[in-house]
């Protein structure tokens, strides 16, 4: 859109040159009126569909046509911080982010939260949304690099999301490694002792299901999908 505007401007300049005269008096010309700013505002609603996995405060970012993670590639440190510890601050401050927002707090199972994010004069942005399933080692759900340019005002898109594995921390489920209320353990840790590739999550095992050292119980098990996401353009 920025490119289109520049192109339009250069056309005006060219047509003026072609006429050669352009015989207006600079002194009398009215001051050019800058185009009015256009806001693009989106409501992002995240519903927790799981049995017993609170979601960490949701991170929302608007940016250019890039993805902030990809199945089969190593997670960025910003994503690792989010997926291991539920802290979205690095994620929403990633390079190239034009606007961002954070959920007010964790979203309990069954609950939902609506977060608003807005940009000005940027009609063709891409959105990334991410949240940790906090009673896990490094499970998260989200979308990344989803184009918003086609969305009209009051139009919305809804999708359900699977659980992904950041691949940065082994899914040991042992005490001290899970930041959620099931454990109260450590969040982010710079060490990478897992596949170091983002994948779909294999699910939590739990003590009852044969992982003897696990602090998780059947209450923390989940299946896909885990999150319902609705994005509505409101302005």
């Amino acid at each position: 859109m920025v490119i289109q505007k520049r192109f339009g401007l250069s056309l005006v300049a060219l047509s003026c040159l072609a006429l050669t005269a352009c015989d207006h008096n600079d002194d009398d010309a009215p001051a050019p009126v800058p185009p009015a700013d256009v806001s693009y505002s989106y409501e992002v609603t995240v519903q927790n569909m799981t049995q017993g996995q609170p979601l960490s405060p949701v991170g929302v970012a608007l940016h250019d046509d890039v993805v902030m993670w990809e199945v089969g590639t190593p997670a960025s440190t910003a994503l690792e911080v989010l997926a291991e510890g539920g802290d979205n601050s690095d994620f929403t401050a990633s390079e190239g982010v034009m606007a961002s927002a954070s959920g007010a707090g964790p979203i309990a199972p069954g609950s939902s939260e609506t977060i608003t994010v807005m940009v000005v004069n940027e009609p063709d942005t891409f959105i990334s949304v991410a949240t940790m399933l906090v009673n896990t080692n490094d499970a998260f759900a989200g979308i990344t690099g989803h184009a918003l340019g086609e969305l009209e005002v009051n139009q919305s898109i809804t999708m359900v999301l699977p659980v992904l594995d950041a691949g940065t921390e082994a899914n040991s489920e042992v005490a001290g490694t899970i930041p959620g209320p099931a454990d109260g353990g450590e969040g982010y840790n710079a060490e990478r002792d897992d596949a170091d590739l983002v994948s779909f999550h294999p699910g939590v095992v739990s003590a009852e299901d044969g992982l003897t050292m696990s602090v998780l119980t059947v209450a923390h098990r989940f299946d896909n999908p885990a999150v319902k996401l609705t994005i509505t353009r409101v302005e």
Binding site: P162, V163, A170, N171, S172, E173, F200, H201, P202, G203, V205, D209, G210, L211, T212, M213, D223, N224
Partner: peptide
């Protein structure tokens, strides 16, 4: 789905329950 266990030398399964399980898709 695989059940697996967390004993690589005994137990009932030779599959790892933390790595070699999956959820669809």
């Amino acid at each position: 789905g695989n059940l697996g266990d967390n004993d690589t030398e005994a137990g009932m399964s030779d599959i790892s329950n933390t790595v070699q399980r999956w959820l669809n898709p």
